[in-house]
Nucleic acid binder design. Structure first.
Lengths: 252, 252
DNA sequence: AGTGCTTATCGTCAGGAAGACGACTATGAT
DNA sequence: ATCATAGTCGTCTTCCTGACGATAAGCACT
């Protein structure tokens, strides 16, 4: 069938971002408050239109930069941590997902170390890190007792998919290091796993596992005591991206 | 920023399909021959425009039906094999991926049992199953000595991504059964793994592994001898979708 | 019937990985 | 000095896997 320009319906294409980080031992996602209808005043995932000359990954990287100031990690420079991890997540195209028009959203997943503060174009009240646990509960109440309004559009589903992707990906890849600063301790890495999975891990077995996996961690020689207690060795992320055998998520 | 209808560029949105099956011990993908430029006469993945009132998954299921006659397996009817497996793969939106206009393609992955023949809208010469090995080699020669023309557009990349998804997913899920008829033997399932991974597996260890994983296989009571040799028990796919522990792909 | 070939299925054994957990070390706080 | 907090090293048991021997049950011949 030939491509007749009048034969296909026009779509708007956007990118939405699931930006995850670990703050205070819990997995948090970046949300922005909507200024206009629909869903005015509700929290939503950051995102925006893909421009006419822009690749999807470029658009996602641009949105991430605009919302957080984060640059995207370039895998061609493996030894240096020069930004966040960004990958395509999934695409959402229900005809009714936006009441105004037909919008197809290509969601992306970004993993970032704990950031000083969101950068909502200067207005801090319009962007915040929220624990995914709060964002995803239906009709519950947040820690401040306020009723939790669900995310705008289908963003709760997108967030849930992004969280699930992150949870499974740190199992068999070294992606958990994307949540850590350039240098980190085994304990800090363990707390990432604990926050993302929502479980407690045995520090001794975890230490044995990660230090015994070739290419996962590279000691930098330094030590730190920022967590209190005995000073811990500092590591960088090694070149390995696939963990074999994988980290094991404890059974339910 | 408000949604100004003139503020976003219009896109065409298509679905492309990576339909995989196992034929004669090798992993094959469905390809269709292009009738018009660009890439006229070249092989491409089946696909088409998403309609105005259609969800992405609906569009993919419709294309699959139109190209193969396959219905999509409905997970709400787990005990019965009522069609192929279909899932979203990834979205491709390079501004130059189609020379005519801006097209964003939401690729889907379908896994199907060996089919009698493609159903190319009635014209068999315009659709065929081709071994992915041939389709993905760059500038090589097929088994008939003919030079292999690469797939149209970015379809080689899409196919490669789909194959990689299938290869990794049968590791930790029961998806390999989607390549099998409703009733199958352990040996037939093993040949699926061998074809998809391109390796040889030990029949004894494989048998122990799959029959020892709870919920993976359900014996139907029957036996068959269609493979020659000693009659083998027949099984259906069990309710389990996640394999824990996973099947292990042999090391390189 | 017997031989050989093929595939299926069961069993055994050694090596490795993981969970449970004891013990020791090195800091800061009181 | 003592305690609390983390980090690190070992040990032991259990389970899983890979390698591979052995047997079973069909079919195609002779």
């Amino acid at each position: 069938m030939p491509y007749d320009p009048s034969a296909f319906p026009p779509f708007a294409v956007t990118v939405d971002l699931v930006v995850l980080t670990v703050r205070r031992h819990s997995l948090c996602a970046l949300t922005v408050r909507r200024g206009e209808p629909p869903f005015q005043g509700r929290w939503a995932l950051p995102g925006g239109f893909v421009r006419a000359d822009e690749d999807l990954a470029q658009a996602a990287a641009r949105e991430l930069w605009e919302e957080t100031g984060l640059r995207v990690h370039d895998p061609s420079v493996p030894a240096q941590d020069n930004g966040a991890h960004l990958e395509q997540l999934a695409t959402y195209g229900d005809p009714k997902r936006d009441p105004r028009m037909r919008v197809v959203s290509v969601a992306h997943l970004a993993l970032a170390p704990d950031l000083p503060a969101p950068r909502p174009g200067g207005d801090a009240s319009n962007a915040r890190w929220a624990p995914v646990e709060e964002l995803l509960q239906q009709g519950g109440y947040g820690r401040d007792g306020e009723p939790v309004a669900p995310l705008a559009f289908d963003h709760a589903q997108i967030l849930a998919d992004g969280v699930e992707r992150a949870r499974s990906k740190i199992e068999y890849s070294s992606l958990a290091t994307a949540f850590c600063p350039p240098e980190f301790t085994v304990g800090e890495l363990r707390r990432v796993y604990e926050a993302v999975w929502g479980v407690a891990l045995d520090p001794r077995n975890f230490h044995r596992k990660v230090t015994g996996t070739p290419g996962f961690l590279v000691p930098t020689g330094g030590t730190t005591t920022r967590q209190g207690g005995r000073p811990a060795q500092l590591f960088r992320a090694g070149g390995a991206t696939l963990l074999n055998p994988p980290m094991l998520r404890p059974e339910v």
